[in-house]
């Protein structure tokens, strides 16, 4: 890699620089992509010094605003988040390693590129502009079971899964102004564009992550199943926000990571949660209905079982 390094101090300066260069925040993903020649660029725009984007602000009933430059480690330590959104703390603690949490940012975590080994390796794959998804008929153990085609990545972000379950919104700023979109609309499937994972266009920057005020009485948890005890991406992860009443789930949401090209939530699944009895038979019936529409590949059928079992574990633990 070889490039010039530009360090604007305001977002306006970034826009003036044009849209061709990658934005560099924590760098934990970008450095790897550049070292591996996946991203080739002659300049890098360091946005670390942009003012005001590294704060967490409690806006009362308007929720909590998290700046994209907040470091993962600082998100974990933040008292407001600890008090009002323990799910996010629990999720953030699952990210990568202590060093990477000290380096990586919230914005970078949700905008990171996939970990697919074909994408990261010496394969001219469809996500890099080629015409083949090598995971098809290849080594697809870690690939998606739903929502795939023509590319079959899974989205690697932990935070995005929790943010989805929390109904968070993402503020995007460009030269033309600002817009705010629900997390669900921020991420896209390969069928819409197989070369990117979200709606960001060149020249657009994530400027806020907005957590709506959380309703009272919900239990939350994030289970991340990984092969190594720590410092690993999710094979499958589940973020749950549930309200229970005795042996009954009143209502709730389940969001999944590791199953699809973007963090995955299904209205149908969440509807079925409403009024679900937590006796073994009902829970089994519920979980075995999950991902009935999945289309696993040769080597990842286990993910269907795993996702169902993790939900079972969550309901057993929370309810």
């Amino acid at each position: 890699m070889q490039f010039s390094y530009i360090q604007p101090t305001s977002i306006e300066e970034v826009f003036k620089l044009g849209s061709a260069a990658p934005l560099y925040a924590g760098g934990t993903d970008l450095i790897g992509l550049m070292k591996d020649d996946i991203i080739k660029t002659d300049k890098v725009i360091n946005i670390k010094k942009l003012k005001g984007l590294d704060k967490i602000e409690d806006k009362g009933n308007k929720g909590i605003e998290i700046g994209p430059l907040v470091k993962i480690a600082d998100l974990i330590e933040n008292e407001t988040i600890q008090e009002k959104c323990p799910l996010l703390v629990q999720t953030a603690k699952e990210i990568a390693s202590p060093q990477l949490r000290n380096m990586g940012t919230v914005g970078g975590n949700i905008c990171q590129r996939p970990r697919c080994w074909y994408y990261r390796g010496d394969f001219d794959c469809i996500r890099k502009g080629g015409d083949t998804c090598y995971a098809v008929g290849g080594e697809n153990k870690y690939h998606c079971i739903i929502g795939g085609g023509p590319c079959f990545i899974v989205h690697p972000s932990d935070l995005a899964v929790a943010l989805l379950a929390l109904d968070a919104k993402i503020e995007i700023t460009s030269e033309n102004g600002q817009k705010t979109v629900p997390v669900n609309d921020f991420f896209i499937l390969p069928e819409d564009d197989e070369t990117k994972e979200n709606i960001l266009e060149p020249g657009e920057i994530v400027t806020k992550i907005i957590l709506p005020e959380q309703a009272k009485g919900f239990k939350t948890t994030y289970i991340k199943f990984k092969e190594r005890s720590s410092w690993d991406f999710a094979v499958v992860s589940v973020a749950a926000v549930l309200k229970t009443d005795g042996n009954m789930i009143k209502n709730g949401k389940l969001a999944f990571g590791g199953v699809a090209p973007h963090p995955w939530m299904e209205a149908e699944i969440n509807q079925k949660l409403t009024g679900l009895n937590t006796d073994e038979a009902s829970v089994d019936a519920f979980t075995s209905s999950l991902f009935h529409n999945a289309e696993p590949m040769e080597k990842n059928e286990y993910k269907v079982i795993l996702a169902r079992n993790l939900v079972k574990r969550i309901i057993d633990n929370l309810a």
Binding site: Y24, G27, I31, G32, N46, P98, Q99, L100, N102, M103
Partner: peptide
């Protein structure tokens, strides 16, 4: 050389970081 092992760990303002994986 990819922020995947930790051998290059140094302290940056007192916090552990991977020196191979930052500019």
């Amino acid at each position: 050389n990819h922020g995947e092992c930790g051998a290059c760990t140094v302290l940056l303002d007192g916090r552990a970081v991977y020196s191979c994986h930052m500019l």
